[in-house]
C-alpha cells in the first residue's frame, strides 16, 4: 500500500546529524594540533567535555520527558568546541561544570537545539572565565622555556614568530593556537557548504584592519595580532553557529563586521586580553535585530534576489 503525503516526495538527504558530523571532522585538525602542542592531557579535557555534554543532554531529556536528541551530535560539537576553548591544565571537574552550563542552562532550558539565544560553547567559556581563574593563567606549549613562545601573544611584550603563530606553537587555549589547523577545518566546512565565507572573512578581516590602524599600519604586527588569541576558532567555528547568527548573506556580513569591531575594541580598550568570546556573545544577542534589518525583499513584492 502506497502512502499519501504532501509534496515534495524526495529529499536531498541532508540532515542535522550529517552537518554536525562535518563540524566534528572539521575540528579534528585543531584537536590533533592541540594534542601535539599541549600534550596528552588535551585528550582528557576533550573527552571530559564531550562525554559530560552528551550525558547532561541525555539526562535533561530524560528528566523533562522530551524525545532523546543526542543522536543529532550537536552536544558532541558543543563539548568539543568548549574543550578547544579551555586551557589544557584546567581541572576536569570544571570542564564538567562548563558543559553543564553550556548544555543545560544555555541550550536545553531554552528548548534545545535551534532555540538557544546565544552560542552554548561561547557562553560557557565566558562563564568559566569569570567563575574560574584557570582560564586566566594560560597553558604553555610542552617543552618550551623561551618566554616569547610560552606567553600568550596578547599578553606578551614580544610576539612569537609569525611561523610559530601560524602553526600554533605558543600559549593559549587548546584548540585556538594553530591557525593552520583551524584554516584546514574552515576550508573543509566551506567545501561541504556547512558554512559560507561571509562571517569568517568579515570577522577576521575587520580585526586585521582594526589592528593595522591601532598598530600604526605595521602589517607584520597586525598580522601577528590577527593570528593570536581565539580569533580563528571563534570566527570559523563559533560565530558561524546557525541558530545564533543571521541566515542571509547581508545579515552575516553585518554580524561578522560587528564581531570584528567589538573584538578590536575589547582587545585594545578592555580589561580582558582577548575579546572574541565577548564579541560573539554580544552579536548573538543582536542577531534577532540583524535578522529584522536584513530581511530580503520578497520577489513578488518587487524584490530582486
Amino acid at each position: 500500500m502506497s502512502s499519501l503525503s504532501v509534496s515534495p516526495h524526495i529529499h536531498s538527504g541532508r540532515s542535522t546529524t550529517k552537518i554536525m558530523g562535518d563540524v566534528i571532522i572539521s575540528l579534528l585538525p585543531a584537536t590533533v594540533a592541540g594534542t601535539m602542542i599541549f600534550g596528552w592531557r588535551t585528550l582528557l579535557v576533550v573527552a571530559t567535555c564531550i562525554i559530560s555534554s552528551v550525558v547532561f543532554e541525555a539526562l535533561f531529556n530524560l528528566i523533562v520527558k522530551k524525545d532523546q536528541t543526542i543522536s543529532d551530535l550537536s552536544a558532541v560539537v558543543t563539548g568539543l568546541l568548549l574543550a578547544l576553548n579551555l586551557s589544557v591544565n584546567i581541572p576536569l571537574w570544571q570542564c564538567a561544570v562548563g558543559s553543564l552550563f553550556a548544555i543545560v542552562i544555555v541550550k536545553c532550558v531554552f528548548g534545545g537545539i535551534g532555540k538557544n539565544l546565544v552560542n552554548p560553547a561561547i557562553t560557557a567559556r565566558v562563564f568559566m572565565l569569570i567563575a574560574f581563574s584557570t582560564l586566566a593563567t594560560p597553558a604553555f606549549p610542552v617543552g618550551t622555556v623561551d618566554a616569547t613562545a610560552s606567553a600568550t601573544p596578547l599578553t606578551a611584550d614580544v610576539l612569537p614568530s609569525m611561523f610559530d603563530l601560524f602553526i600554533g606553537k605558543h600559549g593559549g587555549a587548546i584548540g585556538e593556537t594553530s591557525v593552520l589547523a583551524l584554516i584546514i577545518g574552515g576550508v573543509y566546512l566551506l567545501i561541504r557548504r556547512v558554512i559560507s565565507w561571509h562571517i569568517p572573512a568579515t570577522f577576521i578581516g575587520v580585526v586585521f584592519i582594526f589592528s593595522l590602524f591601532v598598530e600604526g599600519f605595521n602589517v607584520d604586527t597586525a598580522l601577528s595580532l590577527t593570528m593570536s588569541g581565539g580569533l580563528f576558532i571563534g570566527a570559523i567555528f563559533m560565530a558561524t553557529d546557525y541558530t545564533t547568527s543571521p541566515p542571509t548573506p547581508l545579515g552575516k556580513i553585518i554580524f561578522g563586521v560587528g564581531c570584528g569591531l567589538l573584538t578590536g575594541v575589547i582587545r585594545y580598550f578592555g580589561t580582558y586580553p582577548d575579546g572574541v568570546s565577548f564579541a560573539i556573545l554580544f552579536m548573538n544577542i543582536l542577531t534577532p535585530y540583524i535578522c529584522n534589518w536584513t530581511k530580503r525583499k520578497v520577489f513578488t513584492k518587487g524584490g530582486k534576489k
Binding site: I10, H11, G13, R14, S15, T16, I19, T69, D72, S74, G112, I113, G114, K115, Y242, T243, P246, P247, T248
Partner: peptide, 12 residues
C-alpha cells in the same frame, strides 16, 4: 525515503 523530522536549527 525522507529523513526523520527534527527540530529547526535555523540554518537558513
Amino acid at each position: 525515503k525522507l529523513p526523520k523530522t527534527t527540530a529547526c536549527i535555523r540554518c537558513g
